[in-house]
Design a protein around this nucleic acid. Structure first.
Ligand SMILES: [Mn+2]
Ligand SMILES: [Mn+2]
Ligand SMILES: [Zn+2]
Ligand SMILES: [Zn+2]
Lengths: 138, 138
DNA sequence: AAATACATTAAAATCATTCTAATCTGTTGA
DNA sequence: TCAACAGATTAGAATGATTTTAATGTATTT
Protein backbone atom coordinates (compact mmCIF):
# COMPACT_ATOMS: atom_id res chain seq x y z
CA UNK A 1 0.00 0.00 0.00
CA UNK A 2 1.22 3.47 -0.95
CA UNK A 3 0.65 6.02 1.77
CA UNK A 4 0.19 9.69 1.18
CA UNK A 5 3.47 10.84 2.74
CA UNK A 6 1.71 13.81 4.32
CA UNK A 7 -0.30 11.45 6.49
CA UNK A 8 2.59 9.11 7.09
CA UNK A 9 4.59 12.03 8.48
CA UNK A 10 1.77 13.29 10.65
CA UNK A 11 1.30 9.81 12.06
CA UNK A 12 4.97 9.07 12.68
CA UNK A 13 5.50 12.47 14.25
CA UNK A 14 2.61 11.69 16.55
CA UNK A 15 4.33 8.45 17.54
CA UNK A 16 1.97 6.25 15.55
CA UNK A 17 2.52 3.74 12.77
CA UNK A 18 0.75 4.38 9.48
CA UNK A 19 -1.90 1.71 9.37
CA UNK A 20 -4.88 1.73 7.05
CA UNK A 21 -7.28 2.61 9.88
CA UNK A 22 -5.19 5.62 10.83
CA UNK A 23 -4.72 6.71 7.22
CA UNK A 24 -8.48 6.68 6.88
CA UNK A 25 -8.85 8.86 9.97
CA UNK A 26 -6.26 11.25 8.49
CA UNK A 27 -8.16 11.44 5.23
CA UNK A 28 -11.31 12.46 7.04
CA UNK A 29 -9.54 14.96 9.28
CA UNK A 30 -6.97 16.53 6.99
CA UNK A 31 -8.06 16.00 3.39
CA UNK A 32 -10.45 18.89 3.06
CA UNK A 33 -9.56 22.50 2.48
CA UNK A 34 -12.15 23.51 5.05
CA UNK A 35 -11.36 22.94 8.69
CA UNK A 36 -14.13 21.72 10.94
CA UNK A 37 -15.19 20.97 14.51
CA UNK A 38 -16.16 17.47 15.59
CA UNK A 39 -16.91 15.10 18.41
CA UNK A 40 -15.68 11.50 18.42
CA UNK A 41 -19.21 10.43 17.56
CA UNK A 42 -19.24 12.78 14.56
CA UNK A 43 -15.91 11.42 13.38
CA UNK A 44 -17.02 7.81 13.66
CA UNK A 45 -20.16 8.62 11.69
CA UNK A 46 -18.16 10.27 8.89
CA UNK A 47 -15.80 7.31 8.71
CA UNK A 48 -18.68 4.86 8.58
CA UNK A 49 -20.34 6.79 5.76
CA UNK A 50 -17.22 6.94 3.58
CA UNK A 51 -16.26 3.51 4.74
CA UNK A 52 -15.02 0.52 2.97
CA UNK A 53 -12.97 0.00 6.12
CA UNK A 54 -13.98 -0.59 9.72
CA UNK A 55 -12.29 1.35 12.51
CA UNK A 56 -12.92 0.51 16.14
CA UNK A 57 -13.84 3.18 18.65
CA UNK A 58 -10.66 2.48 20.60
CA UNK A 59 -8.53 3.27 17.57
CA UNK A 60 -10.41 6.49 16.90
CA UNK A 61 -9.89 7.67 20.49
CA UNK A 62 -6.26 6.64 20.49
CA UNK A 63 -5.49 8.41 17.23
CA UNK A 64 -7.37 11.61 18.07
CA UNK A 65 -5.62 11.77 21.44
CA UNK A 66 -2.21 11.38 19.81
CA UNK A 67 -2.96 14.15 17.28
CA UNK A 68 -4.28 16.40 20.01
CA UNK A 69 -1.19 15.85 22.12
CA UNK A 70 1.06 16.54 19.15
CA UNK A 71 -0.90 19.65 18.23
CA UNK A 72 -2.38 18.45 14.93
CA UNK A 73 -5.81 18.83 16.50
CA UNK A 74 -7.04 21.16 19.20
CA UNK A 75 -9.55 20.29 21.90
CA UNK A 76 -11.96 23.16 22.58
CA UNK A 77 -13.09 23.74 26.18
CA UNK A 78 -16.87 23.38 26.27
CA UNK A 79 -19.34 22.33 28.92
CA UNK A 80 -20.58 19.20 27.29
CA UNK A 81 -20.55 15.51 28.02
CA UNK A 82 -18.56 15.04 24.82
CA UNK A 83 -15.18 16.46 23.85
CA UNK A 84 -15.10 18.84 20.90
CA UNK A 85 -12.08 18.94 18.61
CA UNK A 86 -10.98 21.35 15.92
CA UNK A 87 -8.96 20.59 12.79
CA UNK A 88 -8.15 24.32 12.66
CA UNK A 89 -5.05 24.58 14.80
CA UNK A 90 -4.29 28.22 14.04
CA UNK A 91 -4.82 30.68 16.86
CA UNK A 92 -8.49 31.62 16.87
CA UNK A 93 -11.53 31.65 19.13
CA UNK A 94 -15.10 30.38 19.18
CA UNK A 95 -18.75 31.02 19.50
CA UNK A 96 -20.66 28.13 20.96
CA UNK A 97 -24.22 28.11 19.71
CA UNK A 98 -26.22 26.71 22.60
CA UNK A 99 -29.31 26.12 20.45
CA UNK A 100 -27.47 23.97 17.93
CA UNK A 101 -24.57 22.73 20.06
CA UNK A 102 -22.19 23.86 17.35
CA UNK A 103 -18.89 25.71 17.45
CA UNK A 104 -18.30 28.65 15.10
CA UNK A 105 -14.84 30.07 14.44
CA UNK A 106 -13.95 33.62 15.38
CA UNK A 107 -10.88 34.78 13.48
CA UNK A 108 -8.00 36.06 15.46
CA UNK A 109 -8.62 39.33 13.57
CA UNK A 110 -12.10 39.57 15.01
CA UNK A 111 -10.90 39.63 18.62
CA UNK A 112 -8.29 41.93 20.06
CA UNK A 113 -5.40 39.93 21.43
CA UNK A 114 -6.20 38.88 24.98
CA UNK A 115 -3.57 40.32 27.30
CA UNK A 116 -3.52 38.91 30.82
CA UNK A 117 -1.71 41.08 33.35
CA UNK A 118 -1.77 38.55 36.16
CA UNK A 119 0.96 35.91 36.36
CA UNK A 120 1.33 32.81 38.52
CA UNK A 121 4.84 32.17 39.88
CA UNK A 122 6.44 29.05 38.39
CA UNK A 123 3.73 28.69 35.76
CA UNK A 124 3.61 29.61 32.11
CA UNK A 125 0.63 30.15 29.87
CA UNK A 126 0.14 27.30 27.42
CA UNK A 127 -2.95 28.54 25.62
CA UNK A 128 -5.63 31.19 25.80
CA UNK A 129 -9.14 30.42 24.62
CA UNK A 130 -12.09 32.74 24.31
CA UNK A 131 -15.50 31.07 24.28
CA UNK A 132 -18.57 33.21 23.65
CA UNK A 133 -21.87 31.44 24.19
CA UNK A 134 -24.59 32.57 21.81
CA UNK A 135 -28.33 31.92 21.75
CA UNK A 136 -31.25 32.91 19.56
CA UNK A 137 -31.89 36.62 19.93
CA UNK A 138 -35.54 37.48 20.56
CA UNK B 1 -36.75 25.42 62.03
CA UNK B 2 -35.57 28.99 61.47
CA UNK B 3 -33.99 29.52 58.10
CA UNK B 4 -31.45 32.15 57.29
CA UNK B 5 -33.66 34.31 55.07
CA UNK B 6 -30.73 34.88 52.70
CA UNK B 7 -30.76 31.21 51.81
CA UNK B 8 -34.52 30.94 51.82
CA UNK B 9 -34.68 33.72 49.22
CA UNK B 10 -31.95 32.21 47.06
CA UNK B 11 -33.75 28.89 47.12
CA UNK B 12 -37.22 30.23 46.44
CA UNK B 13 -35.96 32.44 43.65
CA UNK B 14 -34.35 29.36 42.15
CA UNK B 15 -37.72 27.63 42.24
CA UNK B 16 -36.80 25.39 45.17
CA UNK B 17 -38.26 24.93 48.62
CA UNK B 18 -35.99 25.58 51.58
CA UNK B 19 -35.36 22.12 52.99
CA UNK B 20 -32.61 21.29 55.43
CA UNK B 21 -30.57 19.50 52.78
CA UNK B 22 -30.68 22.56 50.54
CA UNK B 23 -29.97 24.96 53.39
CA UNK B 24 -26.88 22.88 54.14
CA UNK B 25 -25.77 23.14 50.51
CA UNK B 26 -26.31 26.91 50.70
CA UNK B 27 -24.22 27.15 53.84
CA UNK B 28 -21.33 25.43 52.14
CA UNK B 29 -21.65 27.46 48.96
CA UNK B 30 -22.54 30.92 50.18
CA UNK B 31 -21.48 31.20 53.82
CA UNK B 32 -17.86 32.09 53.30
CA UNK B 33 -16.46 35.48 52.39
CA UNK B 34 -14.14 33.79 49.93
CA UNK B 35 -15.59 32.49 46.70
CA UNK B 36 -14.33 29.18 45.39
CA UNK B 37 -14.36 26.71 42.50
CA UNK B 38 -15.69 23.20 42.92
CA UNK B 39 -16.83 20.01 41.28
CA UNK B 40 -19.86 18.06 42.47
CA UNK B 41 -17.49 15.56 44.07
CA UNK B 42 -15.73 18.36 45.97
CA UNK B 43 -19.05 19.71 47.19
CA UNK B 44 -20.24 16.33 48.40
CA UNK B 45 -16.96 15.84 50.26
CA UNK B 46 -17.27 19.21 52.01
CA UNK B 47 -20.84 18.47 53.02
CA UNK B 48 -19.88 15.05 54.35
CA UNK B 49 -17.06 16.55 56.42
CA UNK B 50 -19.19 19.23 58.03
CA UNK B 51 -22.08 16.88 58.15
CA UNK B 52 -24.54 16.02 60.74
CA UNK B 53 -26.91 15.67 57.83
CA UNK B 54 -26.94 13.35 54.85
CA UNK B 55 -27.59 14.73 51.38
CA UNK B 56 -28.06 12.44 48.40
CA UNK B 57 -26.13 12.95 45.19
CA UNK B 58 -29.38 13.52 43.32
CA UNK B 59 -30.24 16.45 45.58
CA UNK B 60 -26.79 17.96 45.18
CA UNK B 61 -27.04 17.81 41.40
CA UNK B 62 -30.57 19.14 41.39
CA UNK B 63 -29.73 22.09 43.64
CA UNK B 64 -26.50 23.02 41.85
CA UNK B 65 -28.28 22.90 38.49
CA UNK B 66 -31.04 25.18 39.78
CA UNK B 67 -28.53 27.70 41.14
CA UNK B 68 -26.55 27.59 37.93
CA UNK B 69 -29.66 28.19 35.86
CA UNK B 70 -30.69 31.07 38.08
CA UNK B 71 -27.20 32.57 37.98
CA UNK B 72 -26.25 32.05 41.64
CA UNK B 73 -23.45 29.79 40.43
CA UNK B 74 -21.50 29.78 37.19
CA UNK B 75 -20.31 26.73 35.30
CA UNK B 76 -16.81 27.21 33.90
CA UNK B 77 -16.02 25.65 30.50
CA UNK B 78 -13.15 23.21 30.97
CA UNK B 79 -12.06 20.05 29.22
CA UNK B 80 -12.66 17.65 32.03
CA UNK B 81 -14.89 14.70 32.69
CA UNK B 82 -16.35 16.66 35.61
CA UNK B 83 -18.17 20.00 35.57
CA UNK B 84 -16.49 22.87 37.40
CA UNK B 85 -18.60 25.50 39.13
CA UNK B 86 -17.75 28.89 40.60
CA UNK B 87 -19.42 30.65 43.53
CA UNK B 88 -17.94 33.89 42.18
CA UNK B 89 -20.59 35.05 39.74
CA UNK B 90 -19.03 38.43 39.01
CA UNK B 91 -17.58 38.89 35.54
CA UNK B 92 -14.06 37.49 35.62
CA UNK B 93 -11.85 34.94 33.88
CA UNK B 94 -9.69 31.92 34.71
CA UNK B 95 -6.41 30.21 34.61
CA UNK B 96 -6.71 26.44 34.56
CA UNK B 97 -3.67 24.85 36.14
CA UNK B 98 -3.22 21.61 34.24
CA UNK B 99 -0.79 20.19 36.79
CA UNK B 100 -3.17 20.61 39.71
CA UNK B 101 -6.50 20.58 37.85
CA UNK B 102 -7.45 23.77 39.63
CA UNK B 103 -9.07 26.99 38.48
CA UNK B 104 -7.57 30.34 39.49
CA UNK B 105 -9.46 33.61 39.18
CA UNK B 106 -8.29 36.36 36.90
CA UNK B 107 -9.86 39.67 37.83
CA UNK B 108 -11.73 41.56 35.20
CA UNK B 109 -9.11 44.27 35.79
CA UNK B 110 -6.34 41.91 34.79
CA UNK B 111 -7.74 41.31 31.30
CA UNK B 112 -8.73 43.94 28.79
CA UNK B 113 -12.36 43.62 27.93
CA UNK B 114 -12.78 41.08 25.14
CA UNK B 115 -14.36 42.77 22.15
CA UNK B 116 -15.63 40.47 19.41
CA UNK B 117 -16.15 42.15 16.07
CA UNK B 118 -17.88 39.21 14.41
CA UNK B 119 -21.63 38.78 14.84
CA UNK B 120 -23.97 35.93 13.93
CA UNK B 121 -27.34 36.96 12.47
CA UNK B 122 -30.24 36.17 14.80
CA UNK B 123 -27.94 35.31 17.70
CA UNK B 124 -26.90 37.27 20.74
CA UNK B 125 -23.91 36.77 23.00
CA UNK B 126 -24.88 35.33 26.35
CA UNK B 127 -21.44 35.14 27.95
CA UNK B 128 -17.77 35.48 27.15
CA UNK B 129 -15.21 33.36 28.97
CA UNK B 130 -11.45 33.47 28.76
CA UNK B 131 -9.62 30.30 29.82
CA UNK B 132 -5.82 30.38 29.97
CA UNK B 133 -4.24 26.98 30.51
CA UNK B 134 -1.09 27.12 32.60
CA UNK B 135 1.58 24.51 33.33
CA UNK B 136 4.79 24.36 35.33
CA UNK B 137 7.38 26.57 33.68
CA UNK B 138 10.76 24.90 33.25
C1' DA C 1 11.52 -15.14 7.36
C1' DA C 2 11.43 -14.96 12.36
C1' DA C 3 11.22 -12.17 16.23
C1' DT C 4 9.65 -8.11 18.21
C1' DA C 5 7.07 -4.16 19.07
C1' DC C 6 3.20 -1.97 18.29
C1' DA C 7 -1.81 -1.76 16.63
C1' DT C 8 -6.60 -3.34 16.30
C1' DT C 9 -10.55 -4.97 18.14
C1' DA C 10 -14.77 -6.38 20.80
C1' DA C 11 -16.05 -6.30 24.96
C1' DA C 12 -15.81 -5.08 29.75
C1' DA C 13 -14.91 -1.55 33.14
C1' DT C 14 -15.18 3.07 34.81
C1' DC C 15 -17.26 7.05 36.23
C1' DA C 16 -19.88 11.40 35.93
C1' DT C 17 -24.38 12.39 35.32
C1' DT C 18 -29.34 11.59 34.80
C1' DC C 19 -33.42 9.05 35.67
C1' DT C 20 -36.79 6.23 38.32
C1' DA C 21 -40.03 5.22 41.51
C1' DA C 22 -40.92 4.64 46.23
C1' DT C 23 -41.19 7.33 50.33
C1' DC C 24 -41.20 11.67 52.81
C1' DT C 25 -42.02 16.68 53.98
C1' DG C 26 -43.18 21.59 53.37
C1' DT C 27 -47.13 24.24 52.17
C1' DT C 28 -51.72 25.55 51.71
C1' DG C 29 -56.45 26.24 52.36
C1' DA C 30 -60.69 24.27 54.56
C1' DT D 1 -55.15 22.80 62.97
C1' DC D 2 -54.47 19.33 59.79
C1' DA D 3 -55.57 16.67 55.67
C1' DA D 4 -54.35 16.79 50.95
C1' DC D 5 -51.24 17.99 47.58
C1' DA D 6 -47.17 19.45 45.33
C1' DG D 7 -42.81 19.07 45.44
C1' DA D 8 -38.41 16.98 47.60
C1' DT D 9 -35.40 13.18 48.98
C1' DT D 10 -33.37 9.03 48.32
C1' DA D 11 -31.10 4.57 46.88
C1' DG D 12 -30.31 2.50 43.25
C1' DA D 13 -30.68 1.71 38.24
C1' DA D 14 -29.76 3.51 33.70
C1' DT D 15 -27.12 6.10 30.45
C1' DG D 16 -23.38 7.36 27.75
C1' DA D 17 -18.68 9.03 26.95
C1' DT D 18 -14.33 7.44 27.69
C1' DT D 19 -10.76 4.16 29.14
C1' DT D 20 -9.02 -0.32 29.82
C1' DT D 21 -8.33 -5.22 28.88
C1' DA D 22 -6.58 -9.00 26.66
C1' DA D 23 -6.68 -11.70 22.66
C1' DT D 24 -5.31 -11.47 17.93
C1' DG D 25 -3.18 -9.14 13.91
C1' DT D 26 0.41 -6.39 11.39
C1' DA D 27 4.41 -3.30 10.60
C1' DT D 28 9.18 -3.21 11.43
C1' DT D 29 13.63 -4.86 12.50
C1' DT D 30 17.24 -8.12 12.29
MN1 LIG E 1 -10.36 13.93 26.81
MN1 LIG F 1 -24.01 19.86 33.30
ZN1 LIG G 1 -12.33 26.49 15.41
ZN1 LIG H 1 -13.69 32.06 39.30
Amino acid sequence: MIYDPKYENKLRESGLRPTKQRIKICEVLFNSTETFHFTIKDLVKIIENQANIKVSLATVYNTVHAFNKKGYLKEIPINSSQSYYDTNISHHHHFFDEDENKLIDIDQNDVDEVMIKKTIPGKKIKSIEVIAKIVTDN
